[in-house]
């Protein structure tokens, strides 16, 4: 067994250091070491997108990132999306549009949606479907998820408009 390494990161705004083996994935460390279990594992090979988090502003499947690669990285997980106890527009839209059934894929979809809306605040349905195609949901047929993303985008644009 290789020696453990210390990795320094920022997670959801907090400076966080952890100890890990070189073979451990970032997903494993988030869940088992840091107890951030909101990030889910569905496949372990990057197929399903349930473990999507934000790494330096980009969405990544954390099962395909080694924990040691997170040195110096700025990470955001589902636990860091709500502002205190206030849900953000994407979370709120998923609830209002009934965009989850079992909920296991939901954190990954929300993280991927956050990345989409940061890149493209006004996506078309086609653009939403393309950007979210790496996230699998088996319960909903995606219909209400796509509607929730479009609705969150609308709400966020209105809020931005009102702030001007």
């Amino acid at each position: 067994m290789a020696k453990k390494r210390i990795v320094s990161t920022t997670i959801n705004g907090d400076v966080t250091e952890f100890l890990c083996e070189p073979r451990q994935t970032l997903l494993e460390v988030l869940r088992d070491t840091l107890h951030l279990t909101g990030t889910k594992e569905g496949c372990g090979n990057g197929n399903c997108g349930s473990c999507t988090i934000s790494m330096n502003g980009r969405p990544v499947t954390s099962c395909l990132v080694l924990a040691v690669e997170a040195e110096g990285a700025d990470l955001r997980t589902i636990e860091g999306v709500a502002r205190g106890s206030a849900l953000d527009e994407v979370q709120q839209a998923f609830l209002e549009e009934a965009a989850l059934q079992c909920g296991i894929c939901t954190p990954g979809f929300i993280m991927q949606t956050e990345a989409l809306l940061a890149e493209n605040p006004d996506p078309t349905e086609e653009e939403v479907r393309f950007y979210l195609a790496g996230n699998l949901c088996r319960c909903t047929g995606y219909d209400k998820i796509v509607r929730a993303v479009l609705s969150a985008a609308r709400k966020r644009r209105m809020t931005a408009e009102a702030a001007k």
Binding site: H35, T37, I78, T106
Partner: peptide
Amino acid sequence: TRPIRHDGVDKVTGRAKYGADVM
């Protein structure tokens, strides 16, 4: 009617505990 589901907030914030989350 279409109320917000009772377990919804925990599921969109990552709080809901699934089997693999047991510690």
